[in-house]
């Protein structure tokens, strides 16, 4: 991604300085209990996702009909019980974590890249281009995001990949506006003018000077949106336009559990709680980051 390239090609002195900044941010981030709790949950989910194959001996899609609808905390072999086809729910949660985290990460990357590009163009060049881009963004914002997601998935077809693209597109406007606003406040400052006077190209100025200076609000927004994307993906699966069975997606698990709500409520409550935790942890982290990155609260 662009900012990584920027960091890699930055002079040694700047890298050193950034590391110092990172330490400072971490110190302030650590002070927030909720942020640390969020980080802990996130690390647990990442652990579950990475070691899904090792943590449980079961296949997330292999039915075992004789033990269907087993209740949780009854049998230590199936600690969270089994679903309507006798599949281990804990196993499905672990494999589902892979999907949800991937959706969160990739959807946000898509919207981040799209948002940064469009926002930079609009903010830096202004004029007609600004008008065209921002009116397009206004249109995107005017459509309820769930509706936009459904239309995009319906147009491109079902599947994980298309869900990520849909969610990425529908959450793009936020980044775009943040980026544009930051650029407007930056582009007339002296160091930009100096850079331009030294003969730097627009591309160089945007990538090396403007984007690094806009990163803080973007990081906060991105972290918060990871939770939103996980939720959006689960909602799409819940209404049946997202992920095709037997993929162990959390929202899809929740959706199938509906018909067994009264006899086997764990089919819905367990994935439901997991989704809640995942979204909550990203929100905690996002809030913590916002405080940590805010220069006004430096000391």
């Amino acid at each position: 991604m662009t900012q990584n390239n920027a960091a890699a090609s930055a002079p040694v002195q700047e890298t050193y300085k950034k590391r110092g900044q990172g330490k400072e941010i971490w110190r302030r981030f650590r002070r927030s209990k909720s942020a640390m709790l969020g980080l802990f949950i996130l690390l647990t989910l990442i652990f579950m996702a990475v070691f899904a194959g090792v943590l449980t001996p079961y296949d997330p899609t292999e039915p075992d009909v004789p033990i269907r609808l087993m209740k949780p905390f009854v049998d230590s072999a199936h600690i969270l019980g089994t679903d309507e086809l006798g599949r281990d729910i804990f196993t499905r949660l672990c494999f589902g974590a892979r999907i949800s985290l991937a959706v969160g990460l990739i959807a946000v990357s898509i919207s981040l890249i799209g948002g940064i590009t469009l926002g930079s163009l609009a903010g830096y060049y202004g004029g007609t281009l600004d008008n065209v881009i921002m009116r397009f963004i206004d249109i995107l914002m005017a459509i309820p995001s769930i509706l936009l997601n459904i239309s995009i998935v319906a147009a491109m077809g079902q599947g994980l990949q298309n869900v990520m693209i849909a969610i990425g597109i529908s959450s793009m406007p936020g980044y775009c506006r943040i980026m544009r606003a930051s650029i407007l406040s930056l582009k007339d400052q002296e160091f930009i003018e100096a850079s331009r006077a030294a003969g730097a190209s627009d591309f160089h100025i945007i990538v090396h000077h403007i984007i690094p200076n806009c990163l803080a609000p973007l990081i906060v927004q991105a972290t918060l949106r990871v939770g939103g994307s996980i939720l959006a993906c689960a909602s799409l699966s819940f209404i049946g336009v997202g992920i095709v069975p037997p993929t162990p997606e959390w929202g899809a698990m929740l959706s199938t559990g509906r018909d067994f709500l009264r006899d086997a409520p764990h089919l819905t409550t367990i994935p439901g709680i997991t989704i809640m935790l995942a979204v909550l942890c990203m929100n905690f982290i996002g809030d913590g980051l916002r405080d940590a990155l805010d220069p006004k609260l430096k000391n």
Partner: peptide, 11 residues
């Protein structure tokens, strides 16, 4: 629900 289950078993 019912058709989804059938489909997954058949798969």
């Amino acid at each position: 629900a019912a058709n989804d289950q059938t489909a997954q078993l058949l798969q």
